[in-house]
Simulated assay, not measured.
Amino acid sequence: MTNIKIRDIAIYYPDNAVDNSYYLEHFNKKGRDSTHFIENILGRKSRYVINNDSENSLTMAYEASINVLKKSHLTGEDLDLIMFTSQTPEYLATSNAIQLHNKLNGKHSTLTMDTNANCAGMLVAIDQASRYMQANPFIQRALVVGSDYNTLMANPDEEISYANFGDAACAVILEKTNENTGFIDSIYHTDSVTYSNTNFPRTGLSNTIKGSGEQTMQWIPFDGSIAMPPTYQMFETMLSRNNLSINELDAFCFSQFSIANIKTIKEHYQLDEDKFMYIGDRFGYTGTTSPLLAFYDGIEKGRINRGDHILFWTIGGGFQLVAMLLKY
C-alpha cells in the first residue's frame, strides 16, 4: 500500500518579538485591564510580528520553503506539487504558489495551487494533498506551505485579534512511501452559523479596493464552546474507524488559538498534559500554521518521534472543524 508521510518540516517567523507588556499597556490606556484574558484565556506571553514593509505571507512562505528543501536535501525540481495556503495571501493573481514555483525553480510538470480554509487551511491542504497523491501515480512528492500575515488583520481596539495574533510560515514535504507510516485519516464538521462573525476584509474586497471599506478584521463575539461537542464526536468517530483509542495516541497538536480550548479537551478525556504540544505562549496565534508549528516544536524538542501517532485538530472561521490522524 502506498502511504503519504511527512518527510520534513520547517518554519519561518519574523525577528521582531513583542511581549505582553506592550498590549497590556495599550489596552490599559483604553481603560481596560486585559491581563486575565491575554495571559490565562488566550495563553500569550509573546508573539512574532512583522514590523517592516519587506515581509508578508509570500516572503515568509518562501523562507519556510527554502528551509524545508535544505533540510530534505531537495530542490524545486524535485517537487511534483506546490500547494500554498493562507487567509492573507499577498496576491490574488498570479497565485502565490506559481510565484513560489518561480522562486524555487520548479519544473514544468509541477502542479501549483493556492487554497484558503482560514485557520484550518494547512491541515486541509495536507489532507487534500495526501489524498490526491494517493490517487495520482505521477505525484511522488509535494510541498505544502502555510503562511499567515495575521497581524495585518488585527484590530487595535480588540484584544481577540490585536493581542492574540502572530505571524509565521510553515512548510512540509509530503512523500510517497511503502513504509507503514504517514497520513491515516481525516474528518470534518462544518456549521456555518458564525459565517459573518469574522470577516476580512470587513466589508468585502470590492469595497476595500474602492476605498470605502474598513481595513481591519471584524470580530463579532460568539460562544466558542459550540465547537466542543462536535469535536469530541469527530475524535471518537475517526479513532473508532481506525481501531485506535485516544489513550493510545502519542501526541496532540491542536489549534493554538486559546490555551483554554486545549485545557478543555485535555480535561474532557483526562489526558496527560505532556502529550499536548503548546507554543502559543511564544508564537501567539498564527492561524493556518498553528497546529503545525506545535508539531514542529514537538519534533525539535524530542517530544515527537518517528512512529508516533499524532492527532491534529483545529477550527476555521465560519466555522469548520478538521481533525487529522497521522503516524509520523
Rank of each mutant, 00 (worst) to 15 (best):
T2K: 12
A10F: 07
A10L: 04
Y12C: 11
D15F: 09
A17N: 12
Y23F: 15
L24Y: 07
H26E: 02
H26M: 04
N28I: 10
N28L: 14
K29P: 03
G31Q: 05
D33F: 06
I38M: 07
N40E: 11
S46T: 12
I50N: 01
N52G: 01
S54N: 11
S57P: 00
S57M: 02
L69W: 09
K70L: 11
S72W: 08
D78G: 05
I82Q: 02
I82F: 00
T85D: 02
Y91N: 13
I98Q: 09
H101M: 04
K103N: 08
N105E: 14
G106A: 02
T110C: 05
L111W: 01
T115W: 00
A120N: 07
G121W: 00
G121I: 01
A125V: 02
I126G: 01
I126E: 02
Q128I: 08
S130D: 04
A135P: 01
A135D: 12
I139M: 07
I139W: 04
A142V: 04
V145N: 03
V145C: 05
S147L: 02
L152R: 15
A163P: 04
F165H: 07
G166T: 09
L174I: 04
E175Q: 10
D185E: 13
Y188M: 10
T190P: 04
V193F: 15
Y195N: 14
T198C: 13
F200L: 12
G204E: 03
L205E: 12
T208M: 12
G211K: 06
W219Q: 10
W219G: 00
A227G: 15
P229T: 14
F235L: 10
T237S: 15
R241A: 12
S245P: 05
I246G: 02
E248Q: 14
D250C: 05
Q256G: 06
F257S: 09
I259G: 13
T264K: 15
K266D: 01
H268E: 03
H268K: 14
D274F: 06
D274M: 09
K275I: 03
K275L: 10
M277Q: 15
G280I: 06
T289Y: 02
S290C: 11
A294I: 11
Y296A: 03
I299S: 09
F312P: 05
G316S: 08
G318F: 08
A323C: 14
A323R: 12
L326S: 13
Y328H: 14
